[in-house]
Design a protein around this nucleic acid. Structure first.
Lengths: 207, 207
DNA sequence: ATAATTATCGCACTAAGTGTAATTTTACAA
DNA sequence: TTGTAAAATTACACTTAGTGCGATAATTAT
């Protein structure tokens, strides 16, 4: 009888589901507290208690407090790389990245983006790690581009494309913040990429 | 009589001189320990004891352990900006930055660079802060470029130049590390800037 | 000399993060 | 069903970074 009661649509076993739920609960309560009182004034004990776990268990899921935020941003890099790898062969590398970034970012609600953007800027340590993640993303984009356009002659050009792409993303992010999220990120991204491409005439890089 | 004994060539008062000496002593003993046992395995107590000060006094000079390293890198940004502001009006913006970076880096002994480079890569937190300093430098370079080429029409182009410059610096840094400091930084910088300019045809950006 | 700064220090405290070992929960097979 | 291996959760003690505060000693100015 227990057997029939036991998880009917348990997506991948009870254990993993619980784990996913716990991690999600920690993340959500953590972010909620961060938004309430700021990252620095939120202690791990508070997060643990609010999430109904012990202090020690927190470190079973995250290596540090900052990683709550970073865990949200992770996964985006992979989605981006995948999208780049599937890019149309007729497009320019930078257009491929642009389209990938736009499509990935479009899936994120603007409200969430504003919150994340605010949190990222409040704590210096998180801001520092964000920069690191930018560098990582640049590397991932570069690798994806190399797979899609495997001509070794163009390798340097592709690295520059990756650099400029991340640069455009940062420009768009700054605009988004400056305008308090009035305009959607996708729009700002297109603008930023366009201005970069225009200034640099990157269209020529192809073929 | 005391009056005549008192500081003859005290460069700016006894107090300031002592302070400078103490700060220098902390920095040097700190770096020495970092190189011996790594940043993470060096505690503040060890640094303080080796430098002959109390743990508390350390925080009178530095806000954190990492800042020992960062304090060395500080000042470079300013030198860079100054050099850019004094650039020849006939040169291309990116060439101005290139020359500035090369001249500033040429003043740093290769041995020191290898040490610093190694230290920066060992500790994650320091690495993160290094990325932040890159972003700051990009901003400073951008501001300097705008002063030198004040045409508002070109502002975006200058921001991209600043981005690409920092990118070239990072590329050169990676090469420097990969080659274990076999070739001088100045040479690698010239190469990196050249390849960036070549790929992107940045010469056209002028005029 | 005396008074005002300023550097140095000690102490107690908070909070992040780690090591270890015990305990509970889940998975799986006899 | 039950025993057992593996994984999740917890408690406890510990190290270390960093802060607040107040006392003390050294420098400087009057």
């Amino acid at each position: 009888m227990r057997k029939s009661e036991r998880g009917v649509e348990t997506g991948g076993g009870l254990r993993e589901r619980k784990k996913r739920e716990t991690k999600k609960r920690i993340t959500e309560t953590g972010i909620a507290l961060f938004l309430q009182k700021g990252i620095d004034r939120t202690t791990l004990d508070e997060i643990a208690e609010a999430a109904g776990i012990s202090r020690r268990t927190f470190f079973y899921y995250f290596a540090s407090k900052d990683e709550i935020l970073l865990s949200l941003q992770s996964g985006i890099g992979e989605m981006l790389s995948d999208a780049v790898r599937k890019a149309s062969p007729t497009s320019t590398p930078i257009d491929a990245v642009r389209d990938a970034v736009v499509s990935v970012c479009s899936a994120i609600p603007t409200a969430d983006m504003i919150e994340m953007d605010w949190l990222m800027r409040t704590s210096p340590s998180v801001q520092a790690r964000k920069q690191v993640s930018y560098v990582q993303q640049e590397g991932e984009i570069f690798e994806a581009l190399k797979e899609r356009w495997p001509d070794p002659e163009r390798s340097t050009a592709l690295r520059i494309v990756a650099m400029l792409s991340v640069g455009a993303m940062r420009i768009a992010g700054d605009m988004f913040n400056r305008e308090q999220g009035t305009r959607p990120m996708a729009e700002l991204l297109v603008e930023a990429f366009d201005s970069v491409v225009r200034e640099v005439r990157l269209g020529d890089t192809r073929a």
